[in-house]
Amino acid sequence: MENSMSTQTPIDKQAGDLERWASIIGGGAMVLTGLQQRSLKGILTAVAGGGLVYQGTQGKSTVKQVEDAVGLDHAIRVEKTVTINRSAADLYSFWRNLSQLPTFMRHLKSVQVIDDRRSHWVANAPMGQDIEWDAVIVNDEPNRLIAWTSTDDAPVENSGFVRFQPSAGDRGTEVKVVMEYQPPGGMLGTMIAKLFGEEPEQQIGDELSRFKQLMEAGEIATTEGQPKGA
């Protein structure tokens, strides 16, 4: 960590970096490809706060800030995009009302909004246990982007953003979710792995399709509870 970029980059290069990140997050290319070794959390908080050093409310140590900025290798990252035949404003306002997220995010039990920025999340975990954490919205651009990170005491560190971008040719809105999380080791780690599924891409993909179904078709397609032969 000694030669971390965030502490050694000259101010002007840092500003250029930030612009680049802002354009990657807002652009049409794969976000994760551009991210490479950097952490999403670091980038999101940097873009939101205007500096590559995390300016969050938690008052972190310098070492922690640097870790956030340069990223850790074992983070799990997912990026998934779906086009939904509704306006960015409709989609943003449904999503921004965080307490509605469990309607299409199956692993969530509840999201309780604490204030404009903070919320409390409860997820179902295997064996009847729950996992809870607090999250902070670090960037909120109405009808365009919501970025969040978990607070320091979260059992699973996670951050991400959802972006709503009008798509070319009258096809509605491209909704992109980019997420990063750090599964802890031990029992908890195993539980988390189960929680997010063996294939996190698929899990986020399924959640996005259910969001799309709800917003386009007014219900989530299901066969649960239908008859079958013995």
Binding site: A217, G218, E219, I220, A221, T222, T223, E224, G225, Q226, P227, K228, G229, A230
Partner: peptide, 10 residues
């Protein structure tokens, strides 16, 4: 088998 039920509003 059991009879089918309404599962969704539509």
């Amino acid at each position: 088998v059991p009879d089918p039920k309404i599962l969704n509003p539509h």
